[in-house]
Amino acid sequence: MTGTNAVNAAAADFQVREIPVLLGGDPVALKDWAASWQTRRVLGYVVVIFAGAGMYGAAMGYWRSPVQAGYNLVKFPLIVLATTLGNALLNGMLAPLLGLDLRFRQSLMLVVMSFTIAAAILGSFAPIVFFIVWNIPPLANGMQVPSPTYSFVLLLQVVLVAFAGVAANVRLQRLLGALSGSDRIARKVLFSWLAGNLFLGSQLCWIFRPLIGSPGLPVEFVRPNAFQGNFYEAVFRAIGQLFSS
């Protein structure tokens, strides 16, 4: 019996040793996990999302203040879970329409699995991010952070989040390919899910701002004007200012 199949045998419960199998993205093993909804396993994934995304968010927020780190510990996983649930119905409808006959729970399970992979990767980066922000001037009131340092940290966040996202989605695509038997269908389903999740996820990040925070503004769980404006208006405004200046 292989290691993978040993994990298959204990299908009913989520075990920590499932995480390496999940990260490995072996479609043969993951196909069975995605096929059946097991509450304990889903709860296990939620715990991994809370731990991984939470720790990464906390490390990032620590740059601004320990309180911001505490807030991010909760906010990051909430954004991930709200994105998953907010798009669950749509993702469940798009999969069969694009050629992959998944039940609603199966599509939800697949999205949760891919977010779990991303969260586990992000969680593993948390000590690195923490080490980096520990070694640079804090983003606290009255402190001056050199521009190259600020840019480096922001770029690092982008690279790490992008890496986790790409790694998770490559595994999801392989799994979708195995389930549908067609790379074309897998790509279409993945693209539609990604587009929806990015669209809603960006707005939820906007609502749950600040995630790092600005030195001139207080540390808060959410801004009092959390629901004023949206991510895309801000992007368009920024582009407009860029061209008008």
């Binding site: 649930l85 907010g86 798009n87 119905l89 749509l90 469940g92 409808m93 798009l94 329409l97 929806g196 669209f199 809603l200 707005q203 939820l204 906007w206 609502i207 629901f227 004023q228 404006g229 949206n230 895309y232 208006e233």
Partner: peptide, 21 residues
């Protein structure tokens, strides 16, 4: 399908004042 989009639409309708958007 519009019902599938409804949660996303609600999040945005609470976050913007722009009728055009």
């Amino acid at each position: 399908l519009l019902i599938g989009f409804a949660p996303v639409a609600w999040v945005f309708s609470q976050s913007t004042g722009s009728v055009a958007a």
